[in-house]
């Protein structure tokens, strides 16, 4: 009996040795929400668009999920079932630690902007997926992938507000966006999310209120997926 325990202990410690032998290092992943060259700030900061329109941003949140690192187009590291809510009002949410193997070589990062359809139908979840985060539709099930709210004089709405709640997981209006961004600085990944690029791609006079799944949400989600890039050092 005693020898059995001893064997078990030895076996267990061998296991842990193997675990520690595979040294992991943290790769930090930073998201830098910007408006053009300026760091994006909420509420009071006023920005000017390319067509000289004054604009304010009041809410910016979005989900990123299933982060993977690629080398020559092949996945070399993956964080499965990982869901992160990026919320500019919560600075901590802008930085993630990726537990990657030491000396991992990669030349691109891949991620989903939004929540996949399987997760959308899996019931209540906690953490970043908890419905209290304000990123879940209550009148028709589904996560809001991207929430961008602000004000612009071009919007002839109450308080000149524009409201984009973009999501949808059901065919043919699955708004999930899979993006791949080439990376040069691999020790610390720094991604820009340029809201100016998104705003410039739409006419706020006619398109200022999208809050349900459909064609418009698909179009805008696609526009949104193009505003991620590596920060130029």
């Amino acid at each position: 009996m005693k020898s059995g325990i001893a064997v078990f202990v030895v076996f267990f410690s061998m296991n842990t040795c193997v675990l520690f032998a595979q040294t992991t290092s943290n790769t930090t992943l930073n998201f830098n929400p910007k408006f053009g060259n300026a760091d994006l700030q909420l509420n009071d900061a006023v920005y000017t668009t390319k067509i000289n329109d004054s604009i304010w941003i009041d809410v910016f949140k979005c989900y990123v999920s299933n982060i993977a690192l690629l080398q020559n187009g092949k996945v070399v590291w993956q964080k499965k079932n990982s869901f992160h809510l990026i919320n500019i009002a919560n600075q901590q949410s802008l930085q993630l630690m990726l537990q990657t193997p030491a000396a991992l070589a990669f030349d691109a990062i891949q991620l989903n902007v939004g929540i996949d359809s399987t997760t959308n139908v899996a019931g209540a979840m906690g953490g970043d997926l908890d419905p209290t985060n304000g990123m879940y539709w209550t009148w028709q099930s589904g996560y809001i992938n991207i929430k961008l709210e602000g004000r612009s004089n071009k919007c002839l709405t109450r308080n000149n507000a524009f409201t984009f709640h973009l999501g949808g997981y059901q065919f043919p209006y699955n708004a999930l966006q899979k993006i791949t961004i080439p990376i040069q600085q691999i020790k610390k990944i720094n991604l820009v999310i340029d809201i100016q690029k998104f705003i410039s791609s739409i006419d706020l006079t006619t398109q200022n209120q999208i809050m349900s799944p459909g064609k418009s949400a698909m179009f805008l989600s696609n526009q949104f997926s193009t505003i991620f890039s590596e920060l130029k050092q």
Partner: peptide, 25 residues
């Protein structure tokens, strides 16, 4: 069929302005 899971069902009446009219938080 607007709600896709029993877990999520109670969110609808809790937040609907004509039903319980409350926010989850």
């Amino acid at each position: 069929g607007a709600i896709n899971h029993l877990d999520m069902q109670s969110l609808f009446p809790i937040t609907h302005p004509d039903e319980m009219g409350e926010q989850l938080d």
